[in-house]
Design a protein around this nucleic acid. Structure first.
Lengths: 260, 260
DNA sequence: CGACATTTTGAGAAGGGTCAACGAAAGTGG
DNA sequence: CCACTTTCGTTGACCCTTCTCAAAATGTCG
């Protein structure tokens, strides 16, 4: 009936180490849930080995800050499970979530820029972390890692620009539908999805306040729009963070049409 | 009194070719107005020479499309003079400008993505163009070019995220002030700016409609907010596309405070 | 000057914000 | 196990910013 999505398994790095495939990296990364999707799968064996020697796993509880712009020690990581939110916070208290990052995505800002961002764990996380120094050393030694990062950064930029359209031009109703749709899509692994899903259920990594901060709305507006989606049968009512999508195609429709 | 900003000189590529510095590239790029700021200045001599052999100059009149996502032949370019706007256009007619690119910036999307963007000349342009094939060949042969692109793409991403805050959280008044301030800052070359400017005058590359498309507002709202800025003495009234900033510091203040 | 595009201004409507009260769920401590 | 508090989400009433539609004013170009 429903496809119950779950976070990818968080196999400990000791798992799968008995196969003896040769290199240390192969062994350490063997059981990694995101190894085929993450950027480490796109680099040369040599580079992957360097990365494999440098990483450490780290669990981060929901709500904890991963990095902020004022902080000295840089950190880079691949998300193994959970969701990271990037927030732009201002002195006057206003804030806007400007990015959500899902398993297999890369977290961190090489060549430190000027932006005032806060990266926080939206849900409990498991990360594959690299210290700033280690990662940058590897990056400078292996240009293919820079290439892989470039591809991902370009994709992030495309995503950000789609998001900008939403913030600038969509109605509250479309925005809420867009966000629910996006989270549903991204919490489902493309690999496990053979055809477009029509029903699904998932735990949202975001509270109402956080949804509002994503969408440039107030939480009351989000709540009202979700009520309308339920009333229209697009969502079934469930507990606060549990979303029960009754029709993904309807959800997509509402996320793109301003009227009615 | 005023600093009258002008577009950088568009020296013809034959200029400065008498110095005989050695390589072809040195000669062709000698007179280029953006050679110290553009990405070509960040790559190895070898890479710069390859780029120098592959480029051609091209003038593009305001309004012309540079590339669109449905188009086959990719193009890459460095802006020598003028402004490029990136627009996200939807079938229902809504549109949002998601990026403005100024002289010395790079235009083009390597590793073609999925986004539905239209790049148009906002003003008359002079471009230093590379065909898709030529550029990608050079990029794959010279990883330092990928590195330079990565830096620039990360900066674009930071810019996009700042912009997202504006679209999600700023009032109409702040948005208009932000845009005028941003254009003023970026039309002034950092090299020619010794201290923060307090007064300046410039020709906007954007019409009221385009400003509204940048800001997620309607053109009437933009017009009204500009009237308020004039009434407050932040801008002096001038012709439609001529902006006359009487106080950059006040402009910055209005671009960040929601009240009053 | 005349024709057309662009910008400004006005009046009214509406979408979403604000403030407030209420309800539900989860943790706390006796 | 049950009051108590705290956090989070929902709902209602009202208001304000911005949108919409319309017309006038200004600018542009042949």
């Amino acid at each position: 009936m429903y496809r119950h999505m779950s976070q990818p398994d968080c196999n400990d790095s000791s798992n799968g180490s008995r196969r003896g495939e040769g290199s240390l990296t192969r062994i350490k990364c063997q059981g990694c849930a995101v190894r085929t999707a993450a950027l480490c799968s796109e680099v040369s064996d040599d580079c992957a080995n360097s990365l494999g020697r440098a990483f450490h796993r780290r669990r981060v509880p929901a709500g904890q800050v991963i990095y902020s712009s004022d902080q000295k020690n840089k950190i880079f990581a691949v998300i193994i499970s959970g969701v990271v939110k990037l927030t732009n916070v201002r002195p006057d208290g206003r804030q806007q979530i400007v990015g959500l990052q899902f398993p297999a995505e890369f977290v961190g800002r090489p060549y430190s820029g000027t932006s005032n961002l806060l990266a926080e764990a939206a849900s409990n996380l498991e990360l594959c972390c690299f210290s700033g120094d280690a990662f940058e050393t590897i990056m400078h030694r292996h240009p293919d890692l820079e290439g892989a990062l470039l591809k991902r950064t370009l994709d992030s930029l495309d995503n950000a620009r789609e998001w900008m359209f939403m913030l600038g031009r969509k109605t509250a109703h479309e925005r809420v539908a867009s966000l629910v749709h996006m989270i549903a899509e991204r919490l489902t692994h493309p690999s496990t999805r053979v055809q477009p899903l029509e029903f699904c259920r998932f735990e949202s990594p975001l509270s109402r306040t956080e949804m509002a901060d994503c969408l440039g709305l107030r939480l009351e507006t989000v709540s009202r729009q979700l009520a309308i989606l339920k009333q229209r049968g697009v969502l079934a009512s469930s507990r606060n963070r549990t979303f029960d999508v009754r029709s993904m195609s309807e959800l997509r429709r509402w996320s793109e049409s301003p009227v009615e």
